[in-house]
C-alpha cells in the first residue's frame, strides 16, 4: 500500500516536472503595468511604489505605462482585447471600472478581467467642519430635520455610491448632493463651511483632520482605520450597512491561464510584504490588506448587483 502510494507520488512528481507548462519560461521579457491615470495621482504613485519590489520577485522588469483618459475607460477598452500572455497588466482603483460600465456604453466588462492581487483597501468617511457637530448623533438629528448639503468627489464616484447607501440605511430622506471633481474641491469647500458635510476617502482629509479643522464622524468599514482609530464604524452605532470595497490592485486581461496568474499573484503578494513597500504605505497612510485572486474575483462578482441597485440613482 505504502509502496503504491510512493509510486504514485513519484509518477506525479515526474508528470509535474516534465509536463509542458504553458507559462514555463514566463516571464522572459519585461511586463507592462498599465496605470489608468496620468503620472502623479494615487494610482500612479502606488504602482510606481510597488513595481521595484515586484521586479525582484517576478525576476522581470516592470514597465509602467500611463493611459489616462475618460476616467480609465480608454485603457479598460483596450485592455479587454489585450493578449492574455501575462505581459500586460492593469492597475486601478476598483470598482471605478464597474461604475463606468453603469454610466454608459462600454466596450469592456470588468468581470471578464482576470483578478491577480490587491494590496490595499480604503474606506470612505463622513466628515464635517470642526466648528459644527461634535458627534454622529448630533449630525444625524440635524440631517433629519432639514436637507443638508453634502460634498462628493464626483457624481457616480464611489463616494456618491457610499453616500446613497448610507442615506438609505440611516433613514435620512434628502441630501443636497454637490459633486466636485476629485476630493480636494469638496474637502476645501467643507473646510470653508460652504458645505455641511463631505463624503471622502479617508486618506484625502487626514491633514485637515489632524489639525482639527475637520472632524470625521463615521468610517464606512467593518473595522476601524489604524490612522484615524478614534472614528467609529456603523456596526458600533448599531447599523447594519453594506460597504463597497475600494481596492488598489492588479488585474490581467480576460482568459489569462491559471499558472501565469499564480506566478503573478505570488510575486505581487511577496512584493506587498517587503519592508520597503510597507514603509512607503505607512507614509501614504494606506491600509495594507492582501486580497488574493479568488477573493478579488468574489469582490468583483459581489459589486455588480450592489452597484446595479443604485444605478438608477446614479444616472438620475
Amino acid at each position: 500500500m505504502l509502496k503504491t502510494l510512493k509510486c504514485c507520488a513519484a509518477a506525479a512528481a515526474i508528470v509535474l516536472v516534465t509536463m509542458p507548462v504553458y507559462g514555463a519560461d514566463y516571464p522572459n521579457k519585461p511586463v507592462r503595468l498599465i496605470v489608468t491615470a496620468a503620472p502623479g495621482g494615487g494610482e500612479d504613485t502606488e504602482a510606481r511604489a510597488i513595481a521595484p519590489f515586484v521586479e525582484k520577485h517576478l525576476k522581470a522588469q516592470v514597465v509602467i505605462e500611463n493611459q489616462p483618459g475618460a476616467g480609465g475607460k480608454i485603457a479598460f477598452e483596450k485592455f479587454q482585447n489585450t493578449a492574455p500572455d501575462g505581459y500586460s497588466l492593469i492597475t486601478y482603483t476598483f470598482p471605478k471600472s464597474i461604475i463606468i460600465e453603469h454610466q454608459g456604453k462600454t466596450g469592456y466588462k470588468t468581470k471578464d478581467f482576470t483578478p491577480i492581487f490587491a494590496w490595499s483597501r480604503s474606506s470612505q468617511i463622513l466628515i464635517v467642519n470642526g466648528e459644527t457637530w461634535k458627534t454622529f448623533g448630533e449630525f444625524l438629528k440635524a440631517a433629519k430635520e432639514k436637507p443638508l448639503s453634502g460634498g462628493l468627489s464626483g457624481r457616480g464616484s464611489t463616494t456618491h455610491l457610499m453616500g446613497l447607501i448610507a442615506l438609505d440605511e440611516l433613514g435620512i430622506s434628502k441630501v443636497n448632493w454637490v459633486p466636485y471633481e476629485g476630493s480636494a474641491g469638496s474637502v476645501a469647500a467643507l473646510a470653508g463651511k460652504h458645505l455641511d458635510f463631505t463624503m471622502s476617502l479617508a486618506t484625502s482629509a487626514v491633514p485637515l483632520i489632524q489639525a482639527g479643522k475637520l472632524r470625521p464622524l463615521l468610517l464606512f468599514s467593518d473595522k476601524r482605520d489604524p490612522y484615524i482609530s478614534d472614528v467609529p464604524i456603523p456596526k458600533e452605532l448599531g447599523y447594519d450597512m453594506k460597504f463597497i470595497p475600494t481596492l488598489r490592485g492588479v488585474e490581467a486581461p480576460p482568459k489569462t491561464p491559471a499558472d501565469i496568474v499564480k506566478i503573478l499573484e505570488d510575486a505581487f503578494r511577496k512584493a506587498s510584504q517587503e519592508q520597503g513597500f510597507i514603509d512607503i504605505a505607512a507614509k501614504r497612510k494606506m491600509v495594507l490588506e492582501p486580497v488574493g485572486s479568488k477573493e478579488y474575483a468574489k469582490a468583483v462578482a459581489d459589486s455588480y448587483p450592489f452597484i446595479a441597485k443604485f444605478q438608477a440613482m446614479l444616472t438620475k
Binding site: 496620468a38 502623479g40 495621482g41 480636494a184 491633514p207 489639525a211 507614509k283
Partner: peptide, 21 residues
Amino acid sequence: VGAAVFLGVMIIFGVVPGPLV
C-alpha cells in the same frame, strides 16, 4: 495637477502637508 504630484512627492518623503506642517 502639478501641485497634486508635488503633494504626493512630499508625502512619500514623510512630509505630510497640512496646517501642522
